[in-house]
Design a binder for these strands. Structure first.
Length: 422
RNA sequence: GGAGAAAUGGCAGAGUGGUCGAAUGCGGCAGUCUUGAAAACUGUUGAGGGUCACACCUCCGGGGGUUCGAAUCCCUCUUUCUCCGCCA
């Protein structure tokens, strides 16, 4: 969420930049400022009343001590009205604060100046493209056909055990999954990211900390018995490591990586777009996350983009990088780069990574701060990205590396798979 | 799952109704001493709101209550520890 003082000082600029998301925030911003003013007014009044009753209480204590019981009892009478007033005011204060917060939760992050205007993914700006699209043999198959042909992923079995969107990986398919996870984690730790193993279920406070709650509750599987949620991405447990933390400037930057399965309910879409591995309820992902000094965060974003590029180049997959337009930008992000790998057999691009700078948007909600050189408290910047999401990378490998007599394994992965062909 | 104990500042740990935002120790920071460092000594050191700055308000695991007044009493939730049971 945005910080109120920031809104107060940059009102016009914020409205202009939010318009890139195709929203007119004028009214929301004005209401925020009004509610904040009310809030402070109630707070001041309440403080004054509390100050008065505190001093009366002290006086009563003194009178009792010196044996002046009658005078003390007289004073007690006076507190009745104060109590009533403070009750009324604290109710008003709570209501106003609540209304203010509810509104703040609804305002998305302010896009960075270089975010292109636009409504849909059509308007995203391609900033980079690399890798040759292979010329596939006659009769090249989409990955779900390949999965069946070589018996490495069984979608029907997943249906039987759980339901649609929970594939079962078998034999070399399972091994390839494991190889990819190990390979990604190795690449990340070599680049300085500390490896973490994180919980796959999180509590309400964590869901709230990263913004899945209260609004996007439906995206997560909810274990009602214990009021826990299955994570939709490692971002949730990883970012919540830092909830309510006060770091030292020397702790920054922090870089970590973790592999987790991800669980998404995402109802809605049907057909070719959700076919095979394209969209699942459970999938594997290796995530990278950074906590940065505000002055360094965009440099960090570039480093993360370069890092993901390096992995895709080593896997020799054709990919492109998009700078997301305002309309496609995630709620919490100020600037996002999406990586897409080309699915030759499907003749379409598949998103495999999304790298974002959230600036202080998450940190404000999380209360993630550091003490700067002058000893002042300042919000950190947070960033994260996938490196990488497994199913679509797998789809890309299967489709782009298929030959008439089997699927080749990218050279970089062979030490991890122990075989070079499926 | 059953029985019991506990939750206080960066950490350890006092505090059972008023002058307690909280003793003391450790740690941190600044200074004295020293060629420098260590030791010793002196001072300083929680968070949030509010103010030009003060004042002032809130916070002793979370929530609610009793009282003129709560870290302290009551209810409730959560977490941790010990013992028993179960278990990879």
């Amino acid at each position: 969420m945005l910080q109120v003082p920031f809104i107060r000082e940059h009102k016009a600029d914020i409205i202009t930049r939010l318009s890139k998301r195709n929203i007119d925030a004028t009214e929301m911003i004005e209401t925020v400022l009004k509610l904040d003013e009310d809030r402070r007014g109630f707070q001041t009044q309440l403080d004054n009343i509390l100050a008065e009753s505190n001093s009366i209480s002290k006086e009563i204590g003194m009178l009792f001590k010196s044996g002046k019981v009658a005078e003390a009892n007289d004073l007690k009478e006076k507190t009745g009205q104060l109590k009533e007033d403070s009750k009324t005011l604290s109710d008003q204060l709570n209501e106003t604060t609540e209304a203010l917060n509810q509104l703040l939760y609804k305002i998305p992050n302010v896009p960075n100046a270089i975010v292109p205007a636009g409504n849909t993914d059509e308007d995203n700006e391609e900033v980079y493209r690399e890798g040759d699209v292979p010329v596939l043999p006659e009769g090249a198959l989409p990955h779900w056909e390949l999965a069946k042909k070589y018996d490495i992923i069984d979608f029907e079995l997943g249906n039987k055990i759980t339901g649609a969107g929970f594939p079962v990986y078998k034999g070399k398919g399972a091994r390839l999954q494991r190889a990819l996870i190990a390979y990604f984690l190795d690449k990340n730790t070599q680049a300085g990211y500390t490896e973490y193993q994180l919980p796959h279920l999180v509590n309400e406070a964590s869901g709230f900390g990263t913004g899945q709650l209260p609004d996007k509750e439906g995206q997560m599987y909810h274990v009602t018995e214990d009021n826990l949620y299955l994570i939709p991405t490692a971002e949730v447990p990883a970012t919540n490591i830092f909830r309510d933390e006060m770091l030292n400037e020397s702790d920054l930057p922090i870089a970590l990586t973790g592999y987790t399965p991800c669980f998404r309910r995402e109802a809605g879409s049907y057909g070719a777009h959700v076919r095979g591995l394209n969209r699942l309820h459970q999938f594997d992902k290796v995530e990278i996350l950074r906590v940065e000094h505000p002055e360094r965060s965009y440099q960090a974003l570039d480093e993360m983009v370069e890092h993901v590029k390096g992995i895709l180049q080593e896997l020799k997959l054709p990919y492109r990088i998009l700078r997301l337009c305002g309309g496609d930008l995630g709620f919490t992000s100020a600037l996002t780069y999406d990586f897409e790998v080309f699915s030759t057999a499907q003749d379409r691009w598949l998103e495999i990574s999304s790298v974002s700078n959230f600036e202080t948007f998450q940190a404000n909600r999380l209360k993630l701060r550091f003490k700067n050189a002058e000893g002042k408290k300042q919000l950190c910047h947070t960033l994260n990205g996938s490196s990488l999401a497994l199913p679509r990378v797998l789809a890309g490998i299967l489709e782009n590396y298929q030959t008439e007599d089997g699927i080749n394994i990218p050279e970089a992965l062979i030490p991890y798979t122990g075989f070079d062909k499926i």
